[in-house]
């Protein structure tokens, strides 16, 4: 069964110079438990597509089906509920509440998803953040922040992970470790992953690959 089905998606932005099209008839689908890599140059719409898939942006035209239900039928409340419980979002940076410690951030995410706090410390430990639980995001490195972001997603146990350049700001080794953790967890859990990246080696690790360079 397809977790995501996108058909004839149109999306454009209005700017001072007129309308700038991003997608003109984009169609694709991702089976449940599979992973999809979104690639393309900057401005090709990778982040826009992720925002559309989590209900943070609207479309001009087209049909999106998520978990078997047409997205247009979902109210803002439904979308919020989806993001709270079933969709985990990881961005390149800025995934953490700046005024909460790493542990508090993970607990917050688990709490919002209705999960128990029990495994929070375990996740932090498994991701190499032991001893840093009480640090604030600006007191740890970029790699550690990104691991904490993954811990947040793992703690909420989502059905779909949308990751926007999750290793973009990390050095090669850290990026490799973070990607390992992400794919390992995705496969074990059997959840769907949509990953936007410039890194072709990372894209190669996904089951499917969608190049957005053409806009459709």
């Amino acid at each position: 069964m397809a977790a995501i089905k996108v058909a004839d998606l149109h999306k454009s932005y209005r700017t001072g110079a007129g309308r700038v099209p991003v997608f003109e008839g984009l169609s694709f689908s991702v089976e449940t438990g599979h992973s999809l890599a979104l690639t393309g140059p900057s401005g090709s719409g990778k982040s826009t597509l992720l925002n559309i898939l989590c209900g943070m942006e609207t479309t001009d035209r087209g049909v999106i089906t998520l978990f078997g239900r047409v997205a247009a039928q979902r109210s803002p409340g439904d979308w919020a509920e989806l993001r709270r419980r079933r969709i985990g979002v990881v961005f390149q940076d800025s995934n953490l509440m700046p005024a909460l410690t790493l542990e508090e951030n993970v607990r917050l995410r688990a709490d919002l998803a209705g999960q128990s706090f029990g495994p929070v410390r375990d996740w932090l430990e498994r991701l190499g953040l032991k001893g840093l639980e009480r640090r604030y995001p600006d007191q740890v490195s970029g790699g550690q922040r990104q691991r904490a972001s993954l811990a947040m997603v793992f703690a909420m146990a989502p059905d779909l992970i949308l990751a926007d350049e999750p290793t973009g700001s990390l050095d090669r080794n850290t990026a490799h470790d973070v990607a390992d953790e992400l794919f390992l967890w995705q496969r074990r859990r059997g959840c769907t992953l949509v990953l936007a990246t410039h890194d072709l080696s990372l894209a190669d690790r996904c089951d499917q690959h969608l190049d957005l360079a053409g806009g459709n």
């Binding site: 803002p76 409340g77 919020a80 993001r83 709270r84 419980r85 969709i87 995934n95 919002l112």
Partner: peptide, 14 residues
């Protein structure tokens, strides 16, 4: 604002 936007992304209704 950033933190509040993040909470919204995490599914807290506006």
């Amino acid at each position: 604002r950033h933190g509040l936007q993040l909470l919204e992304r995490y599914g807290v209704q506006r």
